[in-house]
């Protein structure tokens, strides 16, 4: 099924203090079912914007092009409908939700998605059992379930919480926005293990990063180079290595 995620000529802009700023300028990308792709690019190339536009953040205005997922017009869907359809965005720095109990949040999300997919909701006992299994696997303490979502979480705890959500919601397509996550190896490893554990012929992922390092843990099927709001080059996993050694210059020049 070649048109699992298909993006054509996507254009998007953001309102920067009253003046619109174009960020995506005609982006084309396809990620087939069962494959993991990576997007690399310099700062400001529009990588994070792409992940937000795909997940449905309304600060961004889509001004052209299309994005379909499983044959549906992704851009016409509400964020929660995209989640129900199987799209999952792992945030680079997830927002804190003071006052929202983590366990309650997880259960609400899981049951909302299950309901939308026509599956039976989990009762408190079944849910707790499912969560316990995952938290044990992720070496998370029960305490994290009792706290407010992401509030006072360390960097590693936040990543674990994102992966926990990913495992519970069982997406068919995950977007990992790791654009600026720097050199926190533990955090990268947690995310990588989370993704790798979901690898199957029915699961795809888009890994957004500008460090080759993450791709040592999640080996992609294809790597795309992004600059100025477009994909300017695509190739095998070896591109990442080239980038690490030589930087983006040669790709930028080739595209110019």
């Amino acid at each position: 099924m070649s048109d699992f995620l298909k993006i054509q000529g996507l254009q998007a802009r953001i309102d920067a203090d009253g003046t619109p700023k174009d960020i995506l300028k005609g982006l084309d990308l396809e990620v087939p079912k069962g494959e993991i792709h990576a997007i690399m690019g310099p700062n400001g190339s529009g990588k994070s914007t792409l992940s937000y536009v795909l997940a449905g953040r309304d600060d961004y205005e889509v001004t052209g092009g299309s994005a379909t997922f499983k044959g549906q017009d992704l851009l016409a869907l509400e964020p929660e409908e995209r989640a129900a359809l199987g799209l999952f965005l792992a945030f680079q720095s997830p927002v804190e939700l003071p006052g929202v109990n983590n366990a309650n949040f997880l259960r609400t999300a899981v049951n909302a998605v299950r309901r939308a997919r026509g599956e039976a909701e989990l009762d408190a006992v079944a849910f707790l059992k499912a969560v316990r299994a995952e938290t044990k696997h992720l070496s998370m303490s029960d305490d994290m379930l009792k706290r407010a979502v992401n509030v006072g979480f360390s960097g590693g705890e936040k990543k674990r919480n994102e992966v926990l959500q990913m495992r519970l919601l069982q997406p068919s397509f995950a977007i990992l926005d790791e654009t600026d996550s720097g050199l926190d190896i533990d955090a990268l490893r947690i995310v990588a293990e989370g993704v790798n554990s979901l690898r199957s012929p029915d699961f795809s992922a888009l890994v957004i990063t500008h460090h080759q390092r993450l791709l040592d843990y999640i080996v992609p099927d294809r790597v795309h180079v992004m600059a100025h709001g477009r994909i300017i080059h695509s190739g095998g996993p070896d591109i990442a290595k080239t980038l690490e050694k030589q930087g983006y210059t040669q790709f930028l020049e080739a595209a110019a």
Partner: peptide
Amino acid sequence: DDEQLFYLRSRGIAEADA
């Protein structure tokens, strides 16, 4: 907060519930 609202919705929770 728009960002919080979006986070909840991206996890599949309907807007009104979020």
